[in-house]
């Protein structure tokens, strides 16, 4: 075991895994976050605590991950390359590991111009592939970048993101292969609505046998309204939402129910795609629906793997 995390144990056992995203609050109080964790605990192996997503200032992913741990659930701490150089990243990895965090997701991060700090200077000292290289060296060789020895290695399960819907499509699997080579143990994908394109992506993943080297958790987002569907289709770069999904949401008498139904149908489909080892549920601002989605998808109860 690389980290001994619950997520690693479940994935390594060959069980179809579940992770879910929880957004940290714009607050010093973790009360709301703790309530969410309590409500969602048991529905997933681990919960992603996002790192100032969409470049909006929030409680840090590390502090949020600790609150998650204290509530008895396992966190996946997200860490972007946007806000930290390699010194801060390595220091934060040691810090996270020292606090008991066992899963870290390496990301480039949403560009600062999307958030509430548009005039900020970004960092991008290293990119996510390099971040994985650095973190794997710390964990497996017990060395910081440059070779200095770490007394106690950070035992972390390393995650990466993949977006099968961004362009150039022909390069997306090669890019995933680079992340695998760099050290990714698991991968969480962008939200999947366009199953055809995702199937094509997975066919190429299997052709390269990447599914034997990394655990792919397919991302899903439950839609709350037709507007949300349209917004994702037209306004979010690197998203592919087929017209039929928008039409279904628009003509539904109860759009929220329809959104959940589409999400559950998508998960059912994903479960049958060879090489998909789990799902990652991103119920943005709607986390309370995670138990329902997991339940209706037949993913409950979650296994207990020692």
């Amino acid at each position: 075991m690389r980290s001994g995390s619950n997520l690693e144990r479940v994935l390594e056992s060959g069980t179809f895994a579940v992770t879910a995203e929880i957004a940290p609050p714009k607050s010093t109080s973790t009360e709301g976050l703790r309530k969410k964790v309590q409500a969602l605990k048991g529905c997933a192996e681990a919960f992603n605590l996002t790192d100032n997503q969409t470049a909006i200032v929030r409680l840090s992913s590390m502090a949020s991950s600790v609150a998650c741990l204290q509530e008895g659930a396992e966190p996946v701490m997200q860490m972007t390359c946007r806000d930290r150089n390699r010194i801060a990243m390595q220091s934060d990895l040691l810090g996270a590991a020292s606090l008991g965090i066992r899963n870290v997701l390496c990301l480039s991060g949403d560009h600062q111009t999307f958030g509430n700090q548009k005039e900020a200077r970004n960092v991008y000292d290293i990119d996510p592939v390099q971040q994985l290289m650095v973190f794997r060296q710390m964990r497996d060789q017990g060395q910081v970048w440059g070779g200095d020895t770490i007394e106690e290695r950070p035992k972390v399960y390393l995650g990466a993101a993949a977006n099968p819907f961004a362009d150039p499509f022909e390069y997306r699997v090669a890019r995933l292969a680079k992340k695998v080579k760099a050290g990714a143990d698991f991968v969480q994908t962008q939200a999947i609505f366009d199953l055809d394109r995702f199937e094509r992506f997975m066919t190429e993943v299997r052709a390269r046998r990447l599914d034997e080297q990394v655990h792919i958790l397919a991302g899903v987002v439950p839609l709350k309204s037709a507007n949300a569907a349209r917004y994702m289709k037209t306004k979010v770069s690197g998203m592919s939402v087929p017209d039929e999904v928008v039409v279904r949401m628009k003509s539904a008498s109860d759009p929220k129910k329809e959104g959940i139904r589409i999400c559950v149908e998508t998960i059912d489909h994903l479960k049958n795609i060879p090489g998909v080892h789990g799902v990652h549920i991103m119920a943005i601002g709607w986390e309370e629906m995670v138990p329902t989605i997991a339940e209706q998808s037949g993913l409950l109860p979650r296994p207990c793997i020692p």
Binding site: R82, H111, T113, Y124, D127, P168, Y171, K178, Q190, S237
Partner: peptide, 20 residues
């Protein structure tokens, strides 16, 4: 590249354009 990435495009590349 808006993020000065050295190992390929981020997830915001679509139709040849940068999301920024």
């Amino acid at each position: 590249c808006s993020k000065s990435m050295l190992n390929g495009p981020c997830g915001g590349s679509q139709n040849g354009k940068c999301e920024v």
